Simulated scan of single mutants.
Amino acid sequence: MNIQHPSRKAVIASAAVAAMTVTGIAGTAVASSFRDVTLEVDGVSIPVSGFMGNVSDVLATAGVEVSSHDLVAPSLHERVSNGQTILVRRAQQYMVDIDGVSTPTWSTATDIDDLLGQVGTKGAIIAADRSTSRAELPALTVSGPIRVVADGQTHTVDARQGASASDLLSQAGVDVSFLDRVVFTSDEQGSFLRVIRVQRGVEEREETLTKEVEEQEDSTLAKGTRKVAQEGSDGSIKRSVYVERRDGQEIVSQVVSENRTEPVKQIVKIGTKETTTASSSSAASSSSGSSATVTGNDVWAALARCESGGNPATNTGNGYYGLYQFSASTWRAMGGTGLPSEASAAEQTQRAQALQARSGWGQWPACARSLGLL
């Protein structure tokens, strides 16, 4: 049997010729006469004989049912003549993706280029495999070049007539996994085959919950001092997330599990004590014969006068140095280098304030007590 695969244009042209022939011989006697015709269904020819007046009679005699989507030429109500060929092209349903929306489309197209042309929308996507399409159409009904786009590269291959998507991928040397999507689409240059890489899996993601810092006034601390009463810590949310990406773009994101650790508030005491009186044990007070008044930042000047007489270079040989009589080990623990007495007064005060914030006024028990800080 000789099986032909005419294009849609050829089918329509044949239908026009057949219609003219029927018109020439129409009549009551002819309509009731016995006829031998050929019925070609999707390229397969079937001889049909019987008393048949029109195309609908031919299909009924042959037991061929057609839907409203199928192409029949001549049309169902056209008269037929002896020896005539009736063409039937069954329509197939395809899922066409346009702007992310899948729409069922019926077509009698004979290749992908024809099908995309009927859709009439640039960028429309048609699956190139049987998993999402009722029929695997060839890329071309004639030999010619066609593009294969994958991984950001375009391969142009010489496709033979009737080549499928698998043939084109093989010619282009492009491997695909069972997850990857292979689709036909089109642009200004025409139809092409596109490979969309798909990755799926579970990812671990962590979100930081920043701790809250609360400041509380404390009248027992000298004004201008800060003390951490409760160490805080950041919290977190750890999630296991199922993710699907297509060509690197995240399409699906679904939380599988979540573990939450709440943050711990940090509490800082802020000194509000306005004034205090230095005892007569202060070197400066003793020399003047009067008590010293400490206000705000003057507390550090008063403490320095009490500890070292206010001399930043003090080195009495007793293992304590500078304005605030740091030991060498404590000085290094606070980030200092060399000896405290070799550092500037500003650096000594800075490190003394840091030590007080961490450990309190008890680092200078005698002078702090005399100044009313303890």
Rank of each mutant, 00 (worst) to 15 (best):
S68W: 07
D129S: 14
I86G: 02
D151T: 11
V157C: 06
T61D: 02
A301H: 07
G335Y: 09
R239E: 14
Q92E: 13
T276S: 13
R197L: 01
T103K: 14
G271T: 00
T277K: 10
A284N: 08
S285T: 11
M20A: 14
S56K: 14
M1I: 12
S280A: 14
V182I: 07
S7M: 07
V264A: 15
S32Y: 02
A127D: 15
C306T: 10
E207S: 08
A31M: 08
D57C: 06
T272N: 03
T295Y: 01
Q249G: 02
R130G: 15
E274W: 00
G322T: 09
V48Y: 02
Y324A: 06
V66M: 08
T85M: 12
S102W: 07
W361Y: 13
L59G: 07
F192H: 12
E65I: 01
E40C: 05
V72G: 01
G152A: 03
L115N: 03
E203R: 14
D42S: 00
G317V: 09
S191N: 11
A357Q: 15
R369W: 01
Q189V: 09
L193P: 06
R194V: 04
A354V: 05
G120D: 10
H5L: 11
I196Y: 12
T314Y: 05
P263T: 05
D113C: 10
G360D: 06
G362N: 14
F178L: 09
Q93W: 12
G362E: 04
G63N: 00
L71W: 01
T225R: 00
G24Y: 09
S219L: 00
S33F: 04
G322F: 03
T316G: 12
P312S: 10
S102V: 14
G360E: 04
P138H: 02
E244P: 02
Q353A: 05
V80W: 02
Q161I: 11
G338N: 02
D70E: 12
Q353D: 01
K238M: 08
F184H: 15
A139R: 11
G100S: 05
L87A: 04
G120C: 08
W106I: 05
I196F: 11
G224K: 04
V256S: 12
A139Q: 08
D187E: 03
Q363S: 11
S285D: 09
S186F: 04
L371E: 06
K223L: 13
E203G: 03
G336H: 04
G117Y: 05
A284R: 12
E215I: 00
E274C: 00
N2V: 11
P340C: 07
G317I: 10
A19F: 06
R8F: 06
L373I: 03
S164K: 14
Q93K: 14
I125T: 10
D129Y: 06
T277L: 15
R200W: 03
G173N: 01
S281G: 05
T141N: 07
Y321I: 12
I237W: 00
A150F: 13
I146Y: 04
D129M: 08
A346D: 15
G248R: 01
I251N: 03
G271Q: 00
D234P: 10
V101R: 13
V195A: 08
G24W: 07
K122V: 15
G117N: 11
A352I: 09
V80F: 05
V264D: 11
C367F: 01
V44K: 10
R245H: 02
